[in-house]
Every structure is written in structure tokens, then in C-alpha cells.
Amino acid sequence: MSDTSLLFTLADGVATLTLNRPDVFNSINKPLALALQQRLRECQADASVRAVVLTGTGRAFCAGQDLAEITGPDAPDVSEIVEEHYNPLIILIRELEKPVIAAVNGVAAGAGANIALACDIVVARESASFIQAFSKIGLVPDSGGTYFLPRLVGMQRASALMLTGDKVSAAEAVQMGMIYKAFADADFEQEVSALARKMAALPTKGLAYTKQLLNSTFAHDMAQQLRAEGDYQLRAGQTADYREGVSAFLEKRQPTFTGQ
């Protein structure tokens, strides 16, 4: 993959996908959207990948859609971009059978904010911020924003944030339950690395089953979710990592999980 708008590294079971268009605040155009989709598919297929980190270079995590791509006489329909670029990306994140960590290094605006919120764990620099910027240009939230944000912060807050386009600091985002943690800027890379390595060392299949249960929780009533938990618990109990976890507990040692 020759396009440098997306950087990729793999170390210690952690695949890091870094948006690399800092001159336009890592806004997303077609090449970057398709590169992200492809890398996520590769992460799913590669058994050596046990956790994924999504982050950005420069002062921004992602400013959303590159507006230069959707202006001019030959510009594609906005709906076409949503259907071909963003919707597949959100589905890939949610269906990836490995934990995805959004490491929000700077401003996350519009689709950039909602891509972060689609990830399993969202952490941010204390100086980062989140903006539902769609109302400022006459568009509606996309990339799953109207799905994830009300579930994270409640309907009233989600409505206000989307209608006003107000900026939310990382500390405010933690307080309202939008994200998991905010780290001091100086400690951000170290904290993200430690979290990612921790996730990569856990039982990967068990994490995938947990993720699938969370994906279904708002679609099920309690009885359905209880049955789903039983089904996935049966699957988890048949994994090598479950056997290792039990053995390590009984032997009073640290487990060594292989993701199998």
C-alpha cells in the first residue's frame, strides 16, 4: 500500500493505524477511507493482530470529511460518500473480532468524532476535544453518531451536542461517559501503549465474544440477552485461553494467553 495517508505498524500483537494527513487535520478522503477499510480487513484476517489502535498525526485525530472532495462540479454525492466510505468503516470496526482502541490525540470533529465513538475503548489527550460539527455546515450526523452518542451520553445531551455543535473537552467527555479516560498530554503515548499491550495479551476470542454481546444488547430483551450470554459462554469455555486461565488460577501464576 503506497498511499502514505495511513501509516501502519504491528508490534507485540498491536496493530496501529495512524491517520497521516496532518496538513488537513487528518480529514478523510476516498484513498484514506478505502485504506482504512482494507487495513481493518487485514487486521481481522491476521491472527498475529490481537488489538488495534486508531490514532492520528499532528494536532488532530480526525476532522471528518475532507470538504475539498465534495465540492466542485464533479464531486460525488454526500450520500455516496457515506455509503461507500463511512458506513463500511463503522461496520468493520464493530465486527472486528479484536478490541479497537481510539487514541484521540487531538480534535475529533464530525465523522472523526463518530469513528472514535464506534471503537471499543476511547481514550484521549487532556487537550483533545470532540465536536459534532455537522450542524455548522447544514448536514446531519453520520458514521453512526446518532446511534452511538445517545447510547453513551443520553438523548438530551446527544441532541444538544449535535444541534449546537458545541465543543466537548476530553475531561467533559470522560465526565459524561462519552469516552473511557483522558491522559495527560505528556503521558499519552505511554498510556496508550500500555493499554494496547494489555488488551493484546488478554484472551482474544473471549474479548471478541464480549464485543459481539455488547453489539446486540440494545436489540435484545433481557431473556434474549441471557440466552446469548449462555451461547457465547459455551463458546468461550471451549477455548484454549479459558483452559489456560483456569490452570493459571489454580496454579497461582500469571496466565499466558495465545488468543486461541
Rank of each mutant, 00 (worst) to 15 (best):
D187S: 13
G13Y: 11
L195A: 07
G144N: 09
T210V: 09
F130Y: 13
P76G: 04
R50K: 12
Q38V: 04
V14S: 08
G206I: 15
S159P: 00
L36D: 02
T18G: 01
I115A: 01
I81C: 12
A133C: 02
M199G: 04
P88S: 03
S159M: 11
E84V: 02
P76T: 04
D120M: 08
L117K: 04
T4S: 09
Y232H: 11
V192N: 01
L7D: 10
D23E: 15
R227D: 14
L214V: 06
V192I: 12
L40G: 09
D120C: 10
I137C: 06
D187H: 13
A160F: 14
D3K: 08
S169I: 11
V168C: 07
A111R: 07
S27H: 04
E189M: 02
A11E: 15
G64M: 07
R94Q: 14
D46P: 06
E69W: 05
A51K: 01
D23M: 08
T146F: 00
I81E: 04
A103D: 03
A158N: 07
Y209F: 15
S216H: 13
P150W: 03
C119Y: 05
F8H: 11
I179E: 10
F183H: 13
P203I: 09
S169V: 11
A108Y: 09
A186L: 12
Q65W: 09
N114K: 00
V14T: 08
D185G: 06
C62T: 02
K136Q: 14
A223H: 12
A194W: 06
C62L: 00
S48T: 15
L92H: 05
L19G: 02
G13L: 14
L161C: 02
E80G: 02
A109M: 12
S79N: 02
I81K: 01
Q44M: 04
A194T: 14
A194L: 14
K136C: 04
E95L: 07
A108D: 09
G13V: 07
D3Y: 15
A45E: 14
S127E: 08
G145V: 09
A45Q: 14
M176W: 08
D185I: 08
K98D: 00
V174I: 07
K198D: 11
R50G: 03
R197V: 13
L7V: 08
L117C: 06
P99W: 11
K181C: 03
D66E: 11
C119S: 10
M178L: 14
S48V: 11
P255Q: 06
A182C: 13
S216A: 15
P255E: 09
T9K: 05
K198R: 15
A196P: 13
E126F: 02
